[in-house]
Design a binder for these strands. Sequence first.
DNA 1: TAAGAAAATGAAAACATTTGCAAGACTGTT
DNA 2: AACAGTCTTGCAAATGTTTTCATTTTCTTA
Lengths: 343, 343
Amino acid sequence: MIKPDIVFVANLAGVSPATVSRVMNHPELVHPETRRKVELAVEKSGYIRNRAAQAMHGRRSATIGLVVPTVANTIFAEVVQSFNDTVSKEGFTLLLASHGYDLDMEYRLIRKLLEHRVDALAVVGLDHSPGTFRLISGQRVPLLAIWNYLPDSPLPCVGVDNCEAGRLAAEHLVALGHRRIGMVFPATSNNDRARDRKKAATAAFIAAGIELPQRWQITSPYSIAQAKAACLELLEGKDRPSALLCANDVIAQGAIYAAARLGIAVPGSLSVIGIGDFAGSAQMEPALTTVRIPAQRIGTAAGEEIVAAVSRCDPDRMIRRRVELELIMRTSTGLAPELIAAG
Amino acid sequence: MIKPDIVFVANLAGVSPATVSRVMNHPELVHPETRRKVELAVEKSGYIRNRAAQAMHGRRSATIGLVVPTVANTIFAEVVQSFNDTVSKEGFTLLLASHGYDLDMEYRLIRKLLEHRVDALAVVGLDHSPGTFRLISGQRVPLLAIWNYLPDSPLPCVGVDNCEAGRLAAEHLVALGHRRIGMVFPATSNNDRARDRKKAATAAFIAAGIELPQRWQITSPYSIAQAKAACLELLEGKDRPSALLCANDVIAQGAIYAAARLGIAVPGSLSVIGIGDFAGSAQMEPALTTVRIPAQRIGTAAGEEIVAAVSRCDPDRMIRRRVELELIMRTSTGLAPELIAAG
DNA sequence: TAAGAAAATGAAAACATTTGCAAGACTGTT
DNA sequence: AACAGTCTTGCAAATGTTTTCATTTTCTTA
């Protein structure tokens, strides 16, 4: 039993291969009766058309490449999901690659995706190696940066303004009267998202006349376990901040667990704010105050833009779409203890 | 500036296309000096080889299809990640599709992946539509079911025995002396994982002479928010169980948050056990007792098996690999209150 | 240094499809 | 019944590689 190809089906239906091809791609061009015959033959033989041969002809490959740091992280899983849903609805299939925050690896992965002749390419963030930029500009493949928005980004982008996210979080703590503030961020090299958030938050605190002692600025990767460990260390002494601004909700979750372990009341003696509003943040006890980044909306919007970019075939069109942030006040933040004491 | 193809590179290097092809695929066959010349030409022209043309020649497409219910769920994100890491290391790229627990959709997605001539296909679980089985058996593509292990599975599989998972969780509660037991599970049609766990847990309870009143058997999808809501309802009355067996850690997390909201002490007056041991379960307060399903090990093992299946080209070889479960005792379960009262 | 073996290269067929072009088969109009 | 116009369809070229086979070049060894 050999695998049926288009000529096998053509013979079976008593037509030419060209007609079979037309039935698959432009059904309106062929006579309904012929169409029926062909469809029957396709059904009977179990024919499955070969996208590779199709792609080779210069047509669409019907694939879209997506490169993310990791999917094992709630942060990106949601965006991958909704992006996939959106492009899938338009008949595209996702080629997924993850580089684990290694930009050289990212370059190699993008190369691999280009070998597969993806119709378009989406990457996360605006930080990429020079090699990557060179590679892309040489090809005529639409490229979209997702997750980040910048008014003057070098790439088309769909996402949120991380500076604003940092600022919103900081201003919320300031409004609650906090002046002894700690921050928990991952290493910010190669991570423009964390960098922008931290910079803007710092600026907002300075603007409010708040000092940020070095001992309360700590570093932790995006992992609940490591964030909890880092915060345990920060919080166990006498001299601790009254509020913690965390780079994202995963870290904030770690911080809250650390406080719970140490018997520190949240928000009574410690306020914690995150960024992201991931699944579960609303349900925690205490429920996490955070700056919502609408991952689904970003994924969907990015999917729409990339499909649009593929169908109009002008790879150099620059679109920038900004998705709105929103401060979600819940129960993990409250008035600074000093204010409460003062009555 | 036209896109360079293999003959363009060949001319640039002053060799034949065949030689260029050999440099890309079997470098050891060509003279070092020639190789250098060709590599230089590749570099200079920015040539990127066309996998589609390669695949068309009957060679590998170097892609592997993975079909999951969803990736927006911690449950699968981890397994996707480690599976991808493993096959990626061997030069394959992942074609990802998600069907949202809809088996008809799954059929269509698998068709699409076959059109792209994936070298192998991985799906989650053993529940699939008859159409899917027919489709696969017609093709000569290795298929692997991941996540579940069954000694007599109809498909090659790499995963855990969900019956054992349910049994382990149930026996732990029994050993702690609990006799008033509730269970929180999603709908079990089209979900063999949840079904097996529930069946085995039920059997274990019956074997221990424990009755399972209908009012304590509740249904909730895999969502923290919905699980929390469902558990709030179950727990707020006077007549509540002393222990909750949850279909997975996401549901267990919801249950713990519900207890926290109602001021019910865990594990003092309510024990909660999950299944999965997801990221964060160990760090929660109280830390979640659970049956660990080693998602990474499953993903890695599945990746290895599928790569092996591709290189040996015997699509009908039946392998079944079982990954071990482990009961992880933490602080969300404790002795039944009745036993404590009795001293 | 010549013969034979081994290594390196090229020519051309093969892979499964799409599409421009042209020819044949209808339709409706005079 | 002839004509123009519109639908359908088939032919054949083109797409970018890989690989078999044959040929040429280089290396051993006597």
